[in-house]
Amino acid sequence: MKEVVYNSDLHFEHKQWNSELAFWEDELKTFKNRLSELVTRWTDKEVLAQLEHYQNQFILHGGVIENLQETIEKHETNIAGHSQKGDESMDVALVKKHSEFRYQMEAQRQIYADLKKEFFRFLSKYM
């Protein structure tokens, strides 16, 4: 017996991911504001180099967020196309793509959590 994966289930997960990505975007704005504050307080080259490192990391992570959002949007468009045809379950290839994307989200969640921990340690040292 095959397991059926419904479009509504995938859509629900996409909504969850989009909310998480929007939260990350908002957090990154706050982190960038913290960096701006620190730039005005410090002249030490080592500290400034670390600030630049975090600035670059936040820019990179912002790009990753955009890519993830685009991928979700494409998958949503695909789901909508299936739904318009009256096909409420996804084919194996699309479910496989969704599972791979779930893995990407989980990996990015860990990368982002590690970056935040590292940044908070930095802030506690230099704020």
Rank of each mutant, 00 (worst) to 15 (best):
E27F: 02
F58D: 07
L35D: 01
E73H: 07
K96L: 06
G81L: 01
V4H: 05
K116L: 08
A93G: 01
H75M: 09
K29G: 10
N56T: 10
E27L: 04
G81I: 04
S99Q: 15
E88L: 07
A22Y: 08
I79H: 01
T30D: 13
K32E: 01
E52Y: 02
D44I: 07
L94W: 05
T43D: 15
V92S: 13
D87S: 06
K32S: 11
Q50R: 15
Q104I: 03
V5N: 10
L38A: 04
Q104C: 12
E106K: 15
M90A: 12
Q57M: 04
H75N: 02
E106P: 03
A22H: 05
L115Y: 05
K2H: 08
R121E: 00
H82L: 15
H11W: 11
Q84G: 11
Q16E: 12
T40I: 02
S89F: 14
D44H: 15
M105H: 00
K45L: 15
K85T: 06
T77H: 08
E37I: 05
H61P: 01
V5H: 07
V5P: 04
E88S: 02
H98F: 15
T30H: 06
I65E: 11
M90R: 01
Q69W: 05
L10N: 13
H98K: 01
N33V: 05
E52K: 11
D87N: 08
M1W: 06
W17Y: 15
R121D: 14
F31T: 13
V39A: 15
A49S: 10
S83M: 14
H98T: 12
M127H: 07
F58S: 05
D44W: 15
E13W: 00
E3P: 11
K45Q: 14
A80K: 10
E106L: 13
M127Y: 03
H53Q: 02
F31S: 07
Q108N: 09
A80V: 07
S8Q: 09
V64N: 02
D91L: 11
Q69Y: 07
R121G: 00
K116E: 10
M1K: 09
V5Q: 15
R109Y: 09
L28F: 03
K29Y: 07
G81N: 08
T43E: 14
A93H: 13
L21G: 07
L21A: 05
E27V: 05
A113E: 02
S19E: 08
E66P: 09
A93P: 06
N78G: 10
S36E: 15
E46F: 12
H82G: 00
E27C: 01
K97L: 14
Q110W: 02
M1S: 13
I72A: 12
R109H: 12
E106Y: 07
E76N: 00
K116Q: 12
E66K: 14
T43P: 05
K2R: 08
F120P: 12
D9V: 12
N33K: 15
S89D: 12
K32Y: 06
E100I: 09
E37W: 05
Y54D: 11
K74N: 08
E3N: 06
